[in-house]
Computed example of a mutant assay.
Amino acid sequence: MRKIQYLLLSASLISFAILSCSQTKSKGPVSPTGYDLTKPQKYGMPDILQEISGIAFNKGDNKIVYAEMDEDGALFSLPLGTKDETKTKFGKKGDYEDVTIAKGWVIMLKSNGDLYSFPLSETKNAEVSKVTETTGLFPKGDYEGLFADETTGNVYVLCKTCKQDKDTKVTSGYVLTLQSDGTLKSAGNFSIDVSQVDNLSGKKKGTFHPSALAVNPLTKEWYIVSSVNKALVVADSKWKIKAVYHLSSNEFNQPEGIAFDNAGNLYISNEGSETTVGNILRFDYKKP
């Protein structure tokens, strides 16, 4: 009898230890330092941006947000906090995934890796007069993440699903340089080791499929959103992952875009659904 009681007690202690470890593992920080991902300021989008995807600011100025939606070859601009959008047509209908702005140029990313660039000044018009199309720079795949550095002119493209990454724990990325005439030239590649995403998040995320990326102007860290995994990944300047944060479905319906303003405030755009409108969530930076 005592032996049975001893075995039962031992089993209970082991179960408690396992549960405690599991709970401890999942109780990491819920937000990056300086932000509270549970308390956003919400900006509802106009109906035409129900499927809002990528977002960008010009030189970090948050007065005007530039956005695109998946199905239309157009760039939308609107004062943040309003629904007074301006539409500028630049291409045919297609699966456009992200937008970025640098050195007076708008760059749009199509899911197949094609890029379209035109002067930001053209957004005053209903249609762009001349668009530079760049194709064939990347292997075939599905691309959603795009970011351009205003200072260096470097442009970064991140693969969502690519053949060369299949059955690996690596996500491929590519670096381009933005020329003064809006053309884009290959300048190298990089990779992100995502093997620690599950461990750092405390949740089973599965294969990593990034949707958008941006550099935090205060820390110079990369912030990468994955809509499929409902995760925000923070990496250092050399792409080493430092932390992973879960994005709750209560706030993040379908996170597809990310941007920062000059003050380091964080913005994440979400596609809408039958019950929710497309929106941009703002998370103000507060110095720790």
Results as ranks from 00 to 15, higher is better:
276 T>F: 12
46 P>E: 04
39 K>Q: 12
272 G>H: 09
215 V>C: 05
195 S>C: 04
110 K>Q: 14
21 C>W: 09
225 V>A: 10
134 T>P: 01
264 G>E: 03
102 A>G: 09
1 M>D: 15
204 K>V: 10
170 V>E: 08
205 K>R: 15
91 G>S: 11
132 T>V: 11
223 Y>S: 09
131 V>F: 05
11 A>S: 14
17 A>L: 12
31 S>G: 03
221 E>T: 15
189 N>K: 07
282 R>P: 02
191 S>D: 06
264 G>W: 10
201 S>L: 14
135 T>K: 15
162 C>G: 09
186 S>C: 03
204 K>R: 11
285 Y>V: 09
193 D>Y: 11
82 T>W: 07
109 L>W: 10
62 N>L: 10
175 V>D: 05
26 S>V: 13
284 D>Q: 12
18 I>L: 10
48 I>P: 06
93 K>Q: 14
17 A>W: 05
99 V>H: 00
256 E>S: 03
107 I>H: 13
209 H>A: 13
49 L>P: 08
268 I>V: 14
10 S>P: 02
49 L>S: 04
229 N>S: 15
268 I>L: 11
60 G>M: 07
112 N>M: 06
204 K>E: 10
273 S>P: 13
136 G>I: 06
263 A>I: 02
221 E>S: 15
71 E>H: 12
147 F>L: 04
125 N>T: 02
178 L>W: 06
112 N>H: 12
229 N>P: 04
65 V>Q: 01
122 E>N: 05
134 T>H: 08
77 S>D: 06
160 K>T: 06
169 K>V: 10
113 G>P: 09
180 S>F: 08
105 W>V: 09
143 Y>E: 10
256 E>V: 01
189 N>L: 07
266 L>V: 00
220 K>I: 12
165 D>N: 05
213 L>I: 13
43 Y>H: 13
186 S>M: 06
100 T>W: 08
170 V>M: 08
28 G>Y: 03
87 K>G: 06
54 G>R: 03
196 Q>H: 07
33 T>L: 14
51 E>V: 01
172 S>M: 02
